[in-house]
């Protein structure tokens, strides 16, 4: 047998797995709050007001929470899309990795910039 080359997939699979935890545990609650509870008036009109949201992103725990949610869900989604392309027979190869993981990286850096680089 020819010598085997170590795959770098563990990096992306770890991010995918962590994103999967966020997608299954946190994302449904966020969908409920922003998509159902607020429009149905279960939370009161000021629950997600500008001032409250500004306070959320201006606090370190709030910014960290949003960073984790945004970046890990991006890594999870992009990994799944990349592999689903393979499943339906499209060989995206290295180009696919660059495009999809690149998008996740850009989203992660943008989230970090807007959440942390601007003065809290």
């Amino acid at each position: 047998m020819k010598p085997m080359k170590r795959s770098n997939e563990p990096i992306f699979w770890s991010l995918f797995g962590a994103g999967g935890v966020v997608a299954s545990l946190v994302a449904p609650a966020l969908v409920f709050i922003t998509g159902l509870a607020l429009p149905l008036g279960l939370l009161g009109p000021d629950a997600l007001s500008y001032e409250r949201m500004l306070a959320l992103v201006s606090s370190l725990p709030g910014a960290l929470f949003l960073f984790v949610v945004i970046s890990l869900l991006l890594w999870h989604t992009m990994h799944r899309i990349n592999h689903s392309l393979h499943d339906i027979g499209i060989k995206a190869g290295l180009g696919g990795k660059v495009i999809f993981y690149g998008l996740a990286l850009v989203g992660t850096m943008a989230a970090a910039y807007f959440l942390f680089a601007t003065p809290l």
Binding site: M4, K5, R6, S7, E9, W13, H83, S84, D87
Partner: peptide, 16 residues
């Protein structure tokens, strides 16, 4: 482990 760690190993699977 070298086989497990390779693309031809577990990483060729997408958990269908």
């Amino acid at each position: 482990m070298p086989l497990v760690n390779s693309e031809e190993g577990v990483w060729g699977c997408t958990l269908v």
